[in-house]
Amino acid sequence: MTDPLLAPRVQRLLSRWSQRRDFQACAQAAYGTRIGAKFPAEALSSLERIAGAGTRSVWAAVREIYAAGSRAQVLERLAQWSASSRHWLRDDAAKCLQGLSRFRGERAVTAFLKEPGPREHLLLLSRRTLLSSSRTHRQCGWNCMRLWVERAGDEPGLDELVAEFFAELPEPDVEGDRLRERLLFHLRLWGHQLPDGDTALHIKSLLEERWSM
């Protein structure tokens, strides 16, 4: 895909394939390669059409685009998907959040807790996933939060960043009150389940202090 003359033709072809069910698998596979990494905006738009059709998950291709360097762009798009009226887009947004949360190092989504723009997209994506009407989606969200808490025990300073993020998840409404209760419940639970349960309990105490102010 380094040929400037060939690239537009390939993009147009893959865009057409993404609109035809019998070719969507081929388009998705192609977007999970250097093609998707080189043209992330076009790839994500086509993957949105595929995911929205409900025929297949596009998680594998999204993962490759994210890993290749378009991390902030991917998070922004997933935040949009999480607000979609189409169930399958919300489904892939939840699955992608869970999958991306497994990355460590510079690719870790928790690396965005210090960056205002991507952090806001991550906040919207996480909140909508945790408050989804789908039990499966909510479980994806809690799986992510547990991964973050577990990682906070290994990375100095991450516990404060995670606690600050958790504190902003609930909004001042009935759903927000419910989310506060669930956050504290899960942190107590993880305090008993995780090898380093002290980190979960420390984050819980930081949350309670923040919410009591």
Results as ranks from 00 to 15, higher is better:
D159Q: 11
L194S: 08
R146E: 13
R56T: 15
H186W: 06
S82I: 03
Q193V: 10
G52C: 05
A53M: 05
T110D: 02
R151Y: 01
E76R: 15
S45D: 10
S85Q: 13
G69W: 04
M145W: 11
E76N: 14
S101Q: 02
L97T: 10
Q73N: 09
T199W: 02
S84P: 06
L147T: 12
T136E: 02
S101L: 00
L6M: 07
A167T: 09
S45P: 01
Q24A: 06
A27Q: 07
T129H: 00
G157D: 03
R102L: 13
K204Y: 01
R138N: 05
G105L: 02
L124R: 14
R146V: 07
S82E: 01
H121D: 15
R146H: 03
Q98D: 11
E42I: 12
C96D: 05
D91V: 05
D173V: 05
L122Q: 13
L130G: 03
H186P: 05
H186L: 12
P195S: 05
P118N: 10
F39R: 11
E48K: 09
L44D: 01
S205V: 02
A200Q: 04
R146N: 07
D159F: 01
F23R: 14
D22N: 06
P4Y: 02
D154L: 14
H87V: 12
P4K: 04
S101W: 00
P172E: 10
R178I: 03
E115N: 09
R77L: 13
R182K: 08
W142S: 09
E42Y: 02
I65Y: 11
L14Y: 02
R210V: 04
F23T: 08
Q193R: 08
Q11V: 11
G197D: 02
W88K: 09
P170T: 07
L47Y: 07
H137Q: 07
R56W: 00
S126M: 12
L187N: 03
A167R: 06
A111G: 07
L123N: 04
L161W: 03
S134C: 10
L147C: 10
V74I: 15
Q193H: 07
S46Q: 12
S134I: 04
G176Q: 03
R71M: 08
L100T: 09
T55W: 01
S82M: 08
L97R: 00
I35Q: 09
L122A: 14
K204G: 00
D154E: 14
F39A: 15
F185L: 13
I50W: 02
A41V: 14
C96H: 06
D159H: 04
F165C: 08
E155L: 09
E48V: 02
L147N: 06
R16V: 12
R12C: 05
L179F: 04
A94D: 03
T2S: 10
Q98E: 12
S15H: 11
L123D: 04
D198G: 09
R138G: 06
I203L: 01
A61L: 12
